[in-house]
Simulated assay, not measured.
Amino acid sequence: MSGSRFCKVCIGSYWKAYSFKAATTETLYFSDVQPMVPIPPITTTYLPDLQTLNGLFISDISTSDREDCLSKFTALRSLNLHGRLFPEWDLSSLTHLYKLHLVGSMQKMFDIQCFPKNLAELILTSSLLMEDPKKKLEKLRSLRVLKLKQAASVGREMTCSSGGFVQLQLLKLSFMNSVVTLRIEEGVLNKI
């Protein structure tokens, strides 16, 4: 990997100057997580070959700006977003996306149709969801890895139903201190 570089990242009318390490234009790993700020639009450059985007903080970016920007990354395979996340965001147009890590609070869990159909790995961290996210996530047909970390859910009960998670190979719950009851219905452990 080459040394650190400096760039301005624009998403709609928001920008943030970042130092980052990039092996190619297929991968961007941001070294710091800080909010982006609004500015007047400047020239826009898209990275059509970008496959990995890690550590982007997006709290103040509007739904339309975020969706507009992300939809241009047609080759994106791995995405890691930080900040306040909104369930109305639609990531389904990212057809190559197979790995998604969402870090930050959500009002509620994304609807199932907002996820890409090929999503194989999902990590939720510090989501503070009151509802059991597995009720929706178990319907993701391609999901093989699900990690719920550091208060991804603050509800007291979680259930893995027998008809869900048809491809799941790994379920990891870590630092889910509020969960008192974990129900695993018959047949679920045979899959994992």
Results as ranks from 00 to 15, higher is better:
residue 107 Q to I: 10
residue 186 E to M: 12
residue 176 M to C: 11
residue 110 F to N: 00
residue 72 K to D: 00
residue 98 Y to W: 09
residue 153 S to F: 12
residue 181 T to S: 05
residue 178 S to C: 11
residue 172 K to V: 14
residue 122 L to P: 02
residue 89 W to A: 05
residue 177 N to G: 08
residue 158 M to V: 11
residue 125 T to H: 13
residue 77 R to E: 15
residue 1 M to A: 10
residue 100 L to W: 04
residue 36 M to R: 05
residue 134 K to Y: 00
residue 79 L to N: 06
residue 124 L to T: 07
residue 166 V to F: 04
residue 104 G to D: 07
residue 186 E to N: 10
residue 152 A to R: 07
residue 35 P to L: 06
residue 108 K to P: 02
residue 187 G to H: 12
residue 73 F to L: 15
residue 36 M to F: 12
residue 112 I to M: 09
residue 143 L to Y: 01
residue 38 P to L: 06
residue 139 K to Y: 01
residue 158 M to Y: 02
residue 147 K to G: 00
residue 20 F to R: 04
residue 173 L to S: 06
residue 13 S to R: 13
residue 49 D to F: 02
residue 78 S to M: 09
residue 175 F to D: 14
residue 156 R to N: 10
residue 77 R to D: 02
residue 63 T to Y: 01
residue 105 S to R: 15
residue 142 S to G: 01
residue 47 L to N: 03
residue 42 I to L: 08
residue 157 E to R: 15
residue 57 F to G: 00
residue 37 V to G: 00
residue 141 R to Y: 01
residue 190 N to A: 15
residue 136 K to G: 11
residue 44 T to F: 11
residue 97 L to F: 06
residue 161 S to I: 13
residue 141 R to H: 04
residue 86 F to T: 05
residue 143 L to W: 04
residue 149 K to G: 00
residue 141 R to M: 10
residue 65 D to F: 03
residue 18 Y to I: 01
residue 1 M to I: 10
residue 79 L to P: 09
residue 141 R to D: 06
residue 12 G to W: 05
residue 151 A to D: 11
residue 14 Y to S: 09
residue 40 P to H: 05
residue 127 S to N: 15
residue 168 L to D: 10
residue 7 C to A: 11
residue 87 P to Q: 06
residue 19 S to C: 09
residue 104 G to W: 01
residue 74 T to Y: 02
residue 148 L to N: 02
residue 25 T to L: 15
